[in-house]
Design a protein around this nucleic acid. Sequence first.
DNA 1: AGCTTATTGTGACGTGCATCACAGACCCTT
DNA 2: AAGGGTCTGTGATGCACGTCACAATAAGCT
Lengths: 233, 233
Amino acid sequence: MKTPSEKEIHGIFLKIPFLAGLSEEERLELRRHIIHRDFRRNEVILNEDDTSNYLYLLLAGQVKVIQKIDQHKEHILAIHKTGDFFGEMALLDGKTAPASVVALTDGRICLITRETFIHVVRTNRRAVDGIIDLLCMRLRQAWLQIRVMSFKDAEDRVWAVLQGLGEKFGVRDSRGVIISLGITHQNIASLSTTSRETVTRFLSKAVKSGEIEILDRKGILLKRAFSEKRHLF
Amino acid sequence: MKTPSEKEIHGIFLKIPFLAGLSEEERLELRRHIIHRDFRRNEVILNEDDTSNYLYLLLAGQVKVIQKIDQHKEHILAIHKTGDFFGEMALLDGKTAPASVVALTDGRICLITRETFIHVVRTNRRAVDGIIDLLCMRLRQAWLQIRVMSFKDAEDRVWAVLQGLGEKFGVRDSRGVIISLGITHQNIASLSTTSRETVTRFLSKAVKSGEIEILDRKGILLKRAFSEKRHLF
DNA sequence: AGCTTATTGTGACGTGCATCACAGACCCTT
DNA sequence: AAGGGTCTGTGATGCACGTCACAATAAGCT
């Protein structure tokens, strides 16, 4: 994993919507209270039903937010990338974490303590608005996911998931949108409530029909046009 | 439908968490800005993708929050009862409504305009906290629904939905919990991503095995014990 | 490089449940 | 009280897809 430089971290902080209202000085003060932590692929960062006292900001790498369904099955609620937050729910309503967070790749997070977080929110009107926006986004995303899950055909669900990944992680290319993530067929299955085999079969079929292309190094090129922005993740 | 009395309405307002911080005077001032509206069973109160300028408070009756999946299919995201809010998302993030709201029974709502709502939130610290709590509740509920939807067996999903209904609408009884709602098998199916026939068959089976009992006047008595509080709706 | 573990690719099989079809019960409405 | 609409109960049918099984790659690790 490439450790982000001081400059990059500063850039990440500047882009965080809910800290937009802070002065440069306040931002620096905030950063002084922050703990950094590296993590490795498959490491559990946060456990469902634990009481957590931090807000997490992802500085590098990707994580998945999951619910365990049974011993052999998990459902992925979201995938986060650099600059994304998670863990805010437990801080906001004081209950236990509603989902676990597991690393998809090696990476780095920083932890903002409950006290620091509360302080920022209490002293900063725009921070509150940012938090409300964040919650609204999460809720819309969850409802969209519910909609996708109620599609009858497994293939429709998988395709919707690919589109969603394309919107959040895709980079435009002359031929379409490229998703390059450390994601497995099993992960896609856990996102789309289907089995790993169904995903594998669907992808092969989609390659044959020319809708997608598998690139070297885990890239998926989506060639079919998007219907619209939906923010599935 | 029984129209709620002045006194009952006052009682409803007192119990609203996000208005808890208001003085009696402010509460009265707020109520002066409010429009009442009666609705009938099956009436569409709010349409997905519309821009809505009101926060809705249910004074009497029940409504379902739905997403249309296709021409013949809908998914129910939530059922609301007297005292519940809906429509807050469009006000908070300024986007279109993420779901439709349709009346399950005749009833009455009151509409709080965007301006009034914003005014309350701007001038009242505790109102903001109430809103954040509401959003957290909605999000936890959505994630729980996602978990239930990813259960493999239709029967498990239906049973989870019945439990959820019991928690929100049930009244305790010496023999268990009674759900008395104007809900159809089709509604239960739309809550649990299965077909109406599967629900019917499951209910008959559950009656035979003694887990539930169908009472006159649309009541369902759940005899099996609950595992835990989960707030599915 | 070589060995191990994780991931992907495919065939074969069985079944849960969606779907269709229709009958009977139970309403509202006039 | 009649009768049209909605809701419930149940059988028959078919197939999408979950599951098992195993082979072929690819990716990590020392």
